[in-house]
Write a protein that binds this DNA or RNA. Structure first.
Length: 218
DNA sequence: TACCAGGAGAAAA
DNA sequence: TTTTCTCATGGT
């Protein structure tokens, strides 16, 4: 049995297979943050619909979203699913952002302390916080998601039942702490995951679940 | 029809 | 402390 690939080697293979993804698909840091909440357990195509409706409903800024009636906000983001839950989460996050003095107010704050504060906000869990830190605030934090866990479990780098923080630590310790690398790596993992790493029968011929190492191995 | 998607919080055990 | 349940639309 071959030794598991290094994380750097996996990145090289993903990049060769899919090319640069240049994420996050958003026009501003604030949009990244809103999208990070809306995409929780939700396909991105539905998030885009919700973002479009939200723009038509309210000024795309924290103050306006906080001031919006919860049911109006929920109706606007309906296509993203869990709309009542996410409306409450968006308002909690925007209120927190206001209290920080907006995105500008976050600049210069140590990443670890900022992350701890973000995790205390209702609706901001580790993946959402790390999405925001990496893609909106340019901090070298590795984002772990279901695709990461699934793919690297298949590759033998993790067992699959590690905690979020354990997997994040693995990537951050083995890779150089470069924001551009972490951005691209996570994007490639998601791209790969969407294409061939889904736990669905249609992927059987080309899926890590069945020893296919498309884009990563062989 | 059934399953899944770039999770997180609350409730139950 | 750990596990299970709930939230929900839209595409395949």
């Amino acid at each position: 049995m071959k030794a598991p690939l290094s994380l750097a080697a996996v990145f090289d293979r993903l990049l060769a297979a899919y090319g640069a993804q240049s994420w996050w698909p958003a026009d501003s840091a604030f949009e990244v943050m809103i999208g990070a909440v809306l995409t929780q357990n939700t396909a991105w195509v539905n998030v885009e619909k919700a973002l479009g409706r939200l723009r038509e409903t309210v000024a795309f800024e924290a103050d306006a979203i906080v001031a919006l009636a919860p049911d109006v906000l929920a109706a606007a983001i309906r296509p993203a699913g869990y709309f009542n839950v996410k409306a409450r989460r968006l308002q909690a996050f925007c209120a927190w952002l206001q209290a920080q003095g907006g995105i500008e107010g976050l600049a210069g704050r140590p990443t670890a302390a900022l992350r701890t504060d973000m995790l205390a906000v209702h609706g901001v869990g580790p993946e959402t916080a790390d999405d925001m830190l990496l893609y909106a605030l340019e901090r070298p934090v590795f984002v772990v998601d279901a695709y990461t866990r699934r793919a690297f479990s298949r590759l033998g780098r993790i067992s699959g039942d590690e905690s979020y923080e354990e997997i994040r630590a693995l990537f951050e310790e083995e890779l150089p702490a470069r924001t551009d690398l972490f951005k691209e790596y996570h994007a490639l993992i998601v791209t790969h995951g969407k294409e061939v790493c889904r736990p669905r029968p249609r992927c059987e011929a080309c899926c890590l679940r069945h020893d296919c190492q498309h884009g990563m191995g062989g």
